[in-house]
């Protein structure tokens, strides 16, 4: 493992911290962009960028599995669906709107301050993060462990998950087959509700 020498040499010059700051410097403007961009779809794409940089942070923490799942599920799957939903709704109406109404601002800032304090306190109170003083290279390759366990020890829960998926699929098929009036009416009502909020 000659290449590990190189990695340890790099680790000595604290590349990890450097990378952390680089990623943070990318993530924070992107996150601000998500909030402040007037174009909903663009902020959706920026959100994908934020998730990608967070996946990068996971990689830095040697949590490759988490990072990859982050990309696969949040970065691409879910956010993309949201973006597409935004595209299919009429986004042009929204550009004229002002989301920062005074009432909303109060509530929003209250919630964000609350969340920030909670996270900050919980982070500070835990004095010693177990990872903090350890060289991350000495950890067991966690992704391999997860892989092995998933394929052998946890095969049964894994199967249950797949059965759950199957059930969900069957449910989705049933829902989409049950076309009739009741559902269509529900859709209309939802639309009206959306219209109502738009006018506020």
């Amino acid at each position: 493992m000659e290449s590990l020498n190189l990695l340890t040499a790099l680790a000595h010059v604290n590349v990890e911290q450097g990378f952390f700051y680089v990623l943070a410097a990318i993530a924070i403007p992107l996150a601000y962009g998500v909030v402040f961009d007037r174009n909903v779809i663009r902020s959706g794409f920026l959100l994908i960028g934020v998730f990608a940089t967070i996946a990068g942070l996971f990689f830095l923490l040697q949590a490759q599995f988490l990072g990859l799942s982050q990309i696969l599920i949040y970065g691409v799957g879910i956010t993309l669906v949201i973006v597409i939903a935004l595209m299919l709704t009429n986004a042009r109406q929204e550009t004229g709107m002002n989301p920062a109404l005074p009432a909303n601002v109060g509530l929003a800032s209250f919630v964000s301050v609350l969340v920030f304090t909670t996270i900050y306190l919980s982070l500070r109170s835990a004095e010693d993060w177990p990872l903090k003083n350890e060289s991350s290279l000495s950890l067991p390759p966690n992704i391999e462990m997860i892989g092995k366990h998933l394929m052998t020890y946890y095969a049964l829960p894994f199967e249950f998950a797949s059965i759950l998926l199957l059930a969900a699929l069957v449910g989705a098929v049933m829902l989409s087959k049950a076309e009739p009036a009741s559902l269509a009416n529900a859709g209309d009502e939802a639309e009206q509700a959306v219209d109502g909020t738009d006018r506020v």
Binding site: F45, I48, L68, S69, I71, L72, G75, V76, G77, L80
Partner: peptide, 8 residues
């Protein structure tokens, strides 16, 4: 994971 990115 990586091959799911191009669709973005």
């Amino acid at each position: 994971a990586v091959s799911s990115i191009p669709v973005v």
